[in-house]
Simulated assay, not measured.
Amino acid sequence: MTKNSAKDDKQQKQQSGNEGITQKPGTSITEWVLAGISCLALLTALGYLIVDGLSGRNGTAQLIVLPVEVTATNGGYVVEFAAENHAGKSVAAVEIRGELRNGDEVVEESSATLDYIPQQSERKGALIFRRDPKAHELRLFASGYSEP
Rank of each mutant, 00 (worst) to 15 (best):
133 P>V: 02
113 T>H: 11
75 G>M: 08
37 I>N: 02
31 E>H: 03
102 N>C: 00
82 A>V: 11
18 N>P: 00
123 R>Y: 10
103 G>W: 06
146 S>Q: 11
61 A>L: 00
18 N>Q: 13
110 S>L: 10
112 A>G: 04
104 D>K: 15
46 L>N: 06
9 D>S: 07
124 K>S: 15
89 K>T: 15
138 L>A: 00
113 T>G: 07
112 A>Y: 01
109 E>L: 12
111 S>Y: 13
71 T>K: 14
27 T>K: 12
10 K>C: 00
43 L>K: 10
60 T>C: 00
108 E>K: 03
102 N>Q: 12
109 E>K: 15
29 I>Q: 08
16 S>G: 01
24 K>V: 14
31 E>V: 08
144 G>V: 02
92 A>M: 04
15 Q>P: 00
105 E>T: 10
16 S>E: 14
25 P>A: 05
145 Y>D: 08
119 Q>V: 04
30 T>M: 07
107 V>K: 06
29 I>A: 10
121 S>Q: 09
124 K>C: 13
23 Q>G: 03
25 P>E: 12
39 C>M: 08
140 L>N: 03
38 S>P: 00
80 E>I: 07
71 T>C: 02
35 A>V: 08
114 L>R: 11
86 H>P: 02
11 Q>Y: 09
138 L>V: 02
32 W>C: 03
50 I>M: 12
46 L>D: 01
138 L>C: 06
119 Q>M: 13
58 N>G: 14
27 T>L: 12
117 I>W: 04
125 G>V: 14
114 L>F: 04
144 G>T: 09
139 R>M: 12
93 A>M: 15
66 L>W: 05
144 G>M: 04
78 V>T: 10
56 G>E: 06
142 A>F: 03
6 A>I: 09
60 T>Q: 13
123 R>Q: 14
2 T>V: 00
54 L>Q: 14
22 T>S: 04
2 T>R: 01
10 K>T: 05
56 G>C: 06
30 T>Q: 06
98 G>P: 03
145 Y>R: 04
102 N>Y: 00
98 G>V: 09
107 V>C: 01
28 S>W: 02
34 L>V: 06
32 W>Y: 07
133 P>D: 08
53 G>Y: 07
146 S>C: 10
43 L>C: 15
33 V>N: 01
83 A>Q: 02
62 Q>L: 09
51 V>P: 02
125 G>T: 07
